[in-house]
Design a protein around this nucleic acid. Structure first.
Lengths: 219, 219
DNA sequence: TTGAATTAAACAAACGTTTAATTAAATTTA
DNA sequence: TAAATTTAATTAAACGTTTGTTTAATTCAA
C-alpha cells in the first residue's frame, strides 16, 4: 500500500507539518476517536510528548489541521470572471472539487465526520463556517446563471448543491464499497483516484447539465 | 430535544432490543469509537455487564444491530412488478430510500462510517454485502428502463446510483450544516426530517428524470 | 550559559471485559 | 400445590489495558 505522508525534512516547522500530515491520514482512515495520540506519534516517528508540546492537545491538533487545510480562494476568483459562461463555470467548479477532494480523501472524510459529530461545538462551527462560505460562492454562480438565462429557474438551488457535494462525498467516503462495485483493485487508493476522477467529473457534468440547462438546443 | 428510543417493555427480548436502539442512537451520533459501553448501559438503564452478557462484546453488539436492521425485500418486489413504468419505479425507489434513511439517520450514518472505517474486516464486508445487494436491484431497474426505451443508454449507471445515494447521505450526514443553510431549527431532528423529506424527494425525482429520461415529449 | 527541543516515565481517568455473588424465574420433585 | 432444585438474569466490584496529558530530567542549539 502507498504512503502519501511526506518524510521529515530539516527544521521544526516541517516537523509540525509532518505530524499534521500523519494525523490527517490516521484521522481520515480511523476517525478522530479511532486514532490515539500514540498512534500519531509512532507513525510520525516523534516522541509522544511532542504532540502536546506542539499543539497543546489532541483536539487542538485537529483544529490546527483544519486551519492548515482550509484555503478557499479559487471559487471567489471564478465568480469574478466575466468571460466564462455560467455553464463553463459550473464545469470548472466540478473539476475543482473533484480534484481537490479526490486528491485528499482523508481530510475530506475527517471534515465530514467532525462537522457533524465532533464533541467540540467549536470545531463543528469552524467546519460549518468554512463549508458555508463555499456554499455561498457556489450559489452565486448558479443564481448568476439563472439571471443570464442559462439555467432553469425551477431548480432547488440548495439541494442541487447538496446533491453535487453529496455525490463526491459518496465516492470518497465509501471507497471500499465502490472499489468492489466498479472492480477497482482493493485497498489501492491511487488506482481508485486515477480511475474515478475523470469518470466522476464527466458524470457530474452530464447530470448537472441535464438538470440546470434550459432545454433549447442540443449541446 | 426528542428521544426516539422506545422505553423498556416487559420481557427480555424487549430489553435486548432496547439496548440495540440506544446503541444505534449513540453510535450514530458519536460514532462507534466515540461511544463507550458505559454510555450505552447508562442511557439504556441496564447494568454495564448486561451488554457483554447479551451480546458478548461491543463489536458483537454492532453486528447484532446491523443484522437487526438489515431488511431489504421491498426493492425485489418492486423489480418483479410488471405494471409500473421504469420511471414510476424510480420514483418509488426514491420515496423508499428517502423515507427509510430520513426516518433513521443514526443507523444510516453508522453504516456509512463502519462500512469503510470499521477496524473489523468482518463488519466492513457485512455492510458492503448488504449495500451491494441493493445496488444490484437498483441497477436492474435502470437497465430494464433502458431496454424498454424509457431511459437513455449513455448514462453511467454505477455513478448515477452513487450520486443518488450520495445525495441522500449528504442530507442525513451533514444535518447541522444543512439546518443552518436551510434555516431549519437547530438540533431538532424532527423538524429537519419533516421539512427535508418531501423536498428531497421532489428534488431527486427532478434530477433523475432530467438525467435518465429520453428527451422526446415534455412530461 | 541560557532557552528551546526532546525524552522516558509516570499520571489519573476511561476503556472493554470478566468475575463472583446475589436475586429472580423456571423447572422438577414430592 | 408447596417445597426443592436448577437455571437464568442481574449486580457491584474488580480486572488489566489504553487513553490523553504532564512531569522532570536530559540533550541540543544559539
Amino acid at each position: 500500500m502507498f504512503n502519501f505522508v511526506p518524510s521529515i525534512k530539516n527544521g521544526m516547522a516541517d516537523k509540525r507539518e509532518h505530524i499534521l500530515m500523519v494525523a490527517e491520514k490516521l484521522f481520515g482512515e480511523n476517525g478522530f476517536d479511532g486514532t490515539s495520540v500514540r498512534d500519531i506519534a509512532h507513525q510520525a516517528n516523534v516522541n509522544l510528548a511532542m504532540i502536546s508540546y506542539y499543539f497543546g492537545s489532541k483536539e487542538k491538533l485537529l483544529e490546527a489541521l483544519i486551519e492548515y487545510r482550509a484555503s478557499f480562494t479559487t471559487l471567489q476568483e471564478l465568480n469574478k470572471d466575466e468571460v466564462l459562461t455560467p455553464i463553463e463555470k459550473m464545469d470548472r467548479v466540478i473539476d475543482f472539487y473533484v480534484d481537490k477532494i479526490m486528491s485528499n480523501f482523508c481530510f475530506h472524510n475527517l471534515m465530514l465526520q467532525q462537522g457533524n459529530n465532533s464533541r467540540s461545538e467549536e470545531i463543528r462551527e469552524l467546519i460549518i463556517d468554512i463549508k458555508q462560505k463555499n456554499f455561498e460562492q457556489l450559489k452565486k454562480i448558479i443564481t448568476d446563471g439563472q439571471r443570464k438565462k442559462f439555467f432553469r429557474k425551477e431548480i432547488d438551488i440548495e439541494l442541487t448543491i447538496g446533491t453535487f457535494m453529496g455525490a463526491i462525498s459518496q465516492f470518497t467516503q465509501a471507497r471500499h464499497y465502490w472499489s468492489r462495485i466498479l472492480h477497482i483493485e482493493k485497498d489501492n487508493d491511487e488506482a481508485y483516484r486515477k480511475k474515478m476522477t475523470p469518470r466522476l467529473k464527466s458524470h457530474l457534468k452530464q447530470v448537472l447539465h441535464a438538470h440546470l440547462k434550459i432545454k433549447n438546443e442540443e449541446s
